[in-house]
Amino acid sequence: MMSMQAKERLAKAVIWGAALITVCILALIIGYILVQGIAKLSLSFFLENPRRMGSEGGIFSPLIGTIYFTCLTMLLAAPVGIGAAVYLTEFTREGPLVRVIRFATDALAGIPSIVIGLFGFAFFVVFLKPLTGGWSILSGSLTAFCMILPTVVRASEEAIKAVPAAYREGSLALGASKWQTVLWVVLPSAMPGILTGVLLGVGRVIGETAPLLLTLGGSLLIPRSIFQPARTLSMHLYLVAMETGEFSVAFGTAAVLVIVILLLNLLSHTLMRRLMIRIGGR
């Protein structure tokens, strides 16, 4: 029979071990991808177009596609998401309508991305073909918009709620209208938090692949407008690894993705710290 203390120590050791495994897995994944991929990274890898289905050449056109696609998606999602958050926090009280909106936002966040992809295919690619050009950056962005809307809404809501009531009261007491208060007092104070939510959305958009397989078209040509098909880096990684088996290009692409995600993470932490300082009262 083990003594109580020995048991206590053993249990804690197991917990430490489990946490260590978790951290090691992360270090292993990031380390492995970077080590395998970084040798591939050169200026020509970034600036050359893919050749032979991506097994040779660089990642220029997927890079351009990613930038187009990400910017357009955020251009759609940020205003709508922030607008929804402002409405939910500043312009309404808890009631049936708000409950339905919250329920819908939660439900949307829970729908598997591939199902959103099916919807995007049926609605944006097929049904709205005259407007979107079928498989195109626009169709892909609209689909991704549906997917990340909940992320942006929630993060913005949290950020706006964190703004102290005294700020609003002070502004209203000075005679500013509700709208002026929101625009000039609440939103600027919450901005770092809102931007963090937008960055979260950017991270998801860059990483997501499944719905884009059905909506973005996967073309290797450089897109000339948002009505043309394209492919993103994540899609490129998948297609190259699965269809050509050329792992060096896949690892190079993966390394680029991991570096971008690391940078986004770093940036959002910096922003979060700024929000804390701003709201914590200087």
């Binding site: 994540s234 896949a250 993705l257 991991v258 993470n265």
Partner: peptide, 21 residues
Amino acid sequence: TRRAIELLAGIPSVVYGLFGM
């Protein structure tokens, strides 16, 4: 550890797939 786990959540699923392959 929390930072590490947050990063783990942000890595694209295709990267996990490639790592797995």
